[in-house]
Write a protein that binds this DNA or RNA. Sequence first.
DNA 1: TTTTAAACGAGACGGTACGTCCTGTCTTATT
DNA 2: AATAAGACAGGACGTACCGTCTCGTTTAAAA
Lengths: 204, 204, 204, 204
Amino acid sequence: MAPSTPQRRGRPRSAAADRAILDATRAALVEVGWSRLTMSHVAIRAGVAKTTLYRRWGAKSELVVDAVAVLFDELELPDRGSLRADIEGVVLSFAALLERPETKTALMAVIAESTSDEALRVRVREAIVDRQKRLVVEGRVRAQARGELPPDPADGDETRRVIDLIFDVIAGAVVHRALVSDGVVDSGWAARFTTLLLGGLGAA
Amino acid sequence: MAPSTPQRRGRPRSAAADRAILDATRAALVEVGWSRLTMSHVAIRAGVAKTTLYRRWGAKSELVVDAVAVLFDELELPDRGSLRADIEGVVLSFAALLERPETKTALMAVIAESTSDEALRVRVREAIVDRQKRLVVEGRVRAQARGELPPDPADGDETRRVIDLIFDVIAGAVVHRALVSDGVVDSGWAARFTTLLLGGLGAA
Amino acid sequence: MAPSTPQRRGRPRSAAADRAILDATRAALVEVGWSRLTMSHVAIRAGVAKTTLYRRWGAKSELVVDAVAVLFDELELPDRGSLRADIEGVVLSFAALLERPETKTALMAVIAESTSDEALRVRVREAIVDRQKRLVVEGRVRAQARGELPPDPADGDETRRVIDLIFDVIAGAVVHRALVSDGVVDSGWAARFTTLLLGGLGAA
Amino acid sequence: MAPSTPQRRGRPRSAAADRAILDATRAALVEVGWSRLTMSHVAIRAGVAKTTLYRRWGAKSELVVDAVAVLFDELELPDRGSLRADIEGVVLSFAALLERPETKTALMAVIAESTSDEALRVRVREAIVDRQKRLVVEGRVRAQARGELPPDPADGDETRRVIDLIFDVIAGAVVHRALVSDGVVDSGWAARFTTLLLGGLGAA
DNA sequence: TTTTAAACGAGACGGTACGTCCTGTCTTATT
DNA sequence: AATAAGACAGGACGTACCGTCTCGTTTAAAA
């Protein structure tokens, strides 16, 4: 039951350095954005040598994924009493997160990088994207309990496909509205979007 | 009737250079992707001096926007006989476009850049994003003619809001599925998505 | 009796342009010095197109030779009554010329260029250097008339060699003192130098 | 007692890089001369990054001064038995040095640059010019010991002025003859020059 | 305790691309 | 045919980061 390499010899890595680096990364993202963020800059700001930084993260994109991932885990889905209210709530929380300068500048950038970097793509999915599917699952279970949605189909694969689809539709719409179309995501937009999602095109 | 600046003084800019630069940009995007694309590389490949390149485009991102914008204009919406078929058709065409290496690597990157560059954001919207709303408008008119959708509301602003919403939902879902979730967009996914869009969550 | 090419076809070259270019060259030399002087800069300053400039002078160094040559022709050798006074006079005039920013920065530069450019070397000699030997000849004739120097030897080649030698010694010493050793050339230095030149090392 | 900065922090500068750069500079001067010598060229030839080069020398002229300075230190004044022979000897050695392509192309160029750059002027004087005054001092002492020249005056300043003057006359004449008048400095010229220097104008 | 070895800060290293500047040539319309 | 204007291909500039390396120093477990 011993953990792997329980005590390596030599000086152990500094946990404080990790924290300082991630904090410095977020702070630098806020100040200069993704494209002008440099590893040297982060190292200096964190009071750390570049070697220390590279020992832990091999590239800017990996560092940024880890630095912003924790922000996405703060998303929650409190029970607002109805499926409509839950959807509107999560849409607004997600939009608020995307408004933060750290995430706004970083999310699209790491996704762009990931289109030509398989390892990064996996890291983004595992650290950021897939973890948020829990919100869809949770809202769905709750709506089923309320009788607002039919129960899961017998086929588990089908259930997973439906959850993935709903996740892509909600997350995709909010991201596209906020970052691509450059429009506001306010309660009015959230309401119109939810109406469309609940009732389909005819209801819009 | 004379156009503005009918004959400027000095040697006129070479239209051939413009074409060569945009072609070279697309070719380089295919070969090396966004992040390893350099202005020098493009200039050499186009057989053009760097000054000529910078005289027209001030930054890599602006150049890439113009280079890929034309690809998005190739999207069309042939009448497939029903709203369902039209939606499935446009989803698959859009996904096919996003699978091309030029667009896959470039679209997210310029959107990421645009989060911290107002001028670029406008350029992206005008050259790429907003132009595709024509597809939504056209499909909607056709569906209304078929009686598949109710007529436009009296309020023109409301009509515009609905079109924007539908556009964000369709484009956002396809982009998220293809580039973020890293999933395939095949006829099965298109069918499930269209069912959800037409009938709402309950239908999914 | 027609001169060569009495009337060429087409628009004749503008003499005003020549003057403007040479004036602009001298002015620019004063302001930015040799190494930051550019052909474009001169053209703009002279209100002339670059083509006009290159049609007349093929390189910066040729242009500068012509621009400063005229300044050297202003050197004169008024009769000051004795060989000693004539030498001190020409030393001080030459030093004053070398103190002007146009000549100070330009003379060494074109000589440096000329070490690897035969045509330029000839141009510098003909336009600047050799023309000043007249001062040595004149002073020598005058001193011979006064009985301060022996008459010319029978061998004309020997005479030429002596003149060249004296010229190199005087011009070389002044240039070295002013531009290389970075020392002042005042009446004290001129007197000491003249004493050495007249009486040899023992007299110094 | 501690030497200045006994151990600076970080990786120390490579002494091998310094040597490689200076060697490459001299080699490049021989091949392409001053005006076509580029920092990039030197860096590549030395197998060194441009940053390494700029970390040590801020400009081409400073680099070239250091690269050729060592050549001037090779000048010597062996005792040839008489003042006349010593002068003829040093004139010929100095002329031979100026004939070398590294020095011919570089010396005038850095002097030209130095006319508009105080720091460079100091560097040239300290690294190249003033160091050669030792030759004058040495020859003078030797001639005084032989009784060919009177002893130093009581006034030390006066001695220094005389040495400076003799240095400017000898060095100036040789440089002017070799590089400006573009004439040969052979034993005949050296003899005529020495006669003039020893006996004054009447002797020439 | 003393030894050992990895992590640490600092900063130099070879390299690549940047965006600007200048060169000398060319292509316009105008004089 | 010369002109003003300015675009053109080419290439050097000096700077900024990259990711690696080489120093001397610090830290904590192993001997």
